[in-house]
Write a protein that binds this DNA or RNA. Structure first.
Lengths: 235, 235
DNA sequence: TTCGTTTTGTTCTTTAGTTCACAAACTCGT
DNA sequence: ACGAGTTTGTGAACTAAAGAACAAAACGAA
C-alpha cells in the first residue's frame, strides 16, 4: 500500500482483522451495494471477487475473518453479507466529520456525494482565515479554528480531515487532537506527528501521481532506466 | 496497504524496485527537498528516516535499490541523493496530465500547488457537460470529452485523472485508453476495467474514511465488536 | 599510520499477506 | 435416499516486506 504511515495501526493489529483485509472491506461493501441495487439476491465469491478485482480465495479468507456468513454450494446472501460488513466497519452508525481548511479541496470534499451514502456526515467546516469564517459552503457555516474544541463537542465530531496547505497541517492536527479527535485523514502534503492512540491516514495526491509517473517512465523508456541504474551502481 | 488494485503493477515488479519502495521514494524526495531548502548539505539515514517516520534500516534498503549513493561514516549528500531519486521516479522531465471532470474536485485538483513543484503540469481540463466546455478554470480552457484524442495528442498527455461521478468513470477510462493514455489516477468511487499495459491507481476518499471509522469504532467500543463477532460465529 | 567512531550496505530472521488446493457442506435431480 | 455438481472455509505453501544485526568502509585524531 501506498502506504507510508498507513498500515501499522498499533493496537488493532493484535487481536482483530488484518489491516490489508480492513482496507478491502469497504470495497466489498460498495460492490455488494451495487449488486443489491441491481436486485441480485445471492452471489458467489467468484462473482464478487471478479467485480472488485481480487482473487476469490483472498475474498473468502477476508470474509472468514468476520464469521461464516456464506452457504457452501450456494454463495453469500447479498443483503445479509452487506449488513455484516457494514456492522463490522461501523457503518451502522453515522460518523460526523469536520473538514479543516475550506479552500478548493475542502470545498470539494464538503460536497462529495460519496460520503453521505456511506454514513459519513460533514458536520463542520473550519478555517483559520477571517474572511472565510461565517461564509456558507455546501449549506454549512464555516467556523473558526479557534473554536474547534466547541465545534467538535457540539457536533460530536469523530473524524477530522486536514485540507489545508502543508505548512498548517501540524498546527491543525494539534488542534484536532486537543479537541479530542482521535482519527485524522490528512490531505496536506506533510507528515504530522500525533500522540499514541490517534490514527492518521495520509492521502497524498502528488505522490500518487509520482508513483504513476515512475511506472509510466518505465513503460516508455523500456529498460533504459534499469541500465542507467546499473551503470550508476558500478561507477 | 490501502490498496486494492494498487500494489501489483504486473510488468514492473519482475525486475525493478519493489512496489513498497517505489511508493516511499516520493516521500523521501519531499523530505530531502525540505532539507535542501533549509540549507542542509548532508544527512544520515537516521535523520532522514526520523523526518519521514520510517525505520532507518528500511530507508537504507530502499535507497540501496537505486545504487550506492551514500558514504559510510558520513551519510548522504542531500542534493545528490535528491537528484538520484528524482531521476529514478522520472521527475527530471515534466509530466503532462489531463483532468477529466471539472466539478469541485477537478477544479480543486487543477489548482493544487503540490503538482507544479513536482514536475506535474495540468495540461488539459476535459468535461462532457456543454455548459462547462469553453469555460476557463485555473487559466485553462475546458475542452470536450469528444475531443479527448486530439487534446491528448496536442498536449502530450501522459497521465489522465478521472474526477467524475462514479457512473461516468468507466466511460472516461475507455476514452482515455482510446486516446493512448496508459496511466490513470481514478478519484471516482468506481472500479474501472482497463486493458493490460494500462496502470490505474485508485484514490477513494470515502474508503479512506471508512477505514478510519473502523479503527475509531474499535477504540470507542473497546472490545465489544470482537465479542459480537465471536457470538455471531457461534450462533 | 593506526585506532576509535560513525554510518552505510547487505545478509539473515521474522512477520504479514497472498495463493493454492481440498475436505466439508450444501442443493438439485433422479 | 443417493450421487453429481457447486461453493465455502481453511490449513499449508509460497511470496513479499519489515526489522535486526553486523561486516565493510569512510573519517578524524593522535
Amino acid at each position: 500500500m501506498n502506504f507510508i504511515g498507513n498500515p501499522p495501526f498499533g493496537e488493532s493489529a493484535d487481536r482483530g482483522i488484518p489491516d490489508a483485509t480492513v482496507a478491502r472491506l469497504p470495497v466489498y461493501l460498495r460492490a455488494l451495494t451495487a449488486l443489491r441495487d441491481r436486485g441480485v439476491v445471492t452471489c458467489s465469491s467468484n462473482e464478487l471477487a471478479e467485480q472488485v478485482g481480487v482473487n476469490p480465495a483472498k475474498l473468502r479468507k477476508d470474509l472468514s475473518y468476520l464469521g461464516s456468513y456464506g452457504t457452501r454450494g450456494v454463495g453469500y446472501e447479498v443483503d445479509f453479507l452487506l449488513h455484516q460488513i457494514a456492522r463490522e466497519i461501523g457503518q451502522t452508525q453515522d460518523w460526523n466529520i469536520a473538514i479543516v481548511g475550506v479552500g478548493h479541496l475542502g470545498t470539494a470534499l464538503s460536497s462529495y456525494q460519496g460520503f453521505t451514502t456511506r454514513g459519513i456526515r460533514v458536520a463542520a467546516l473550519v478555517d483559520a482565515h477571517p474572511e472565510r469564517i461565517g461564509q456558507t459552503v455546501s449549506g454549512i457555516t464555516v467556523t473558526s479554528l479557534a473554536d474547534l474544541g466547541a465545534t467538535v463537542a457540539e457536533q460530536s465530531v469523530a473524524i477530522g480531515i486536514i485540507a489545508t496547505p502543508g505548512e498548517a497541517a501540524q498546527e491543525v492536527a494539534d488542534a484536532l487532537v486537543d479537541a479530542g479527535v482521535t482519527s485524522i485523514l490528512n490531505f496536506a502534503p506533510a507528515l504530522v506527528q500525533v500522540p499514541d492512540g490517534v490514527d492518521v491516514r495520509q492521502v497524498d495526491l502528488s505522490i500518487e501521481l509520482q508513483i504513476l509517473a515512475y511506472h509510466e517512465q518505465r513503460k516508455t523508456q523500456g529498460d533504459a532506466a534499469a541500465l542507467g541504474r546499473a551503470e550508476g551502481a558500478i561507477g
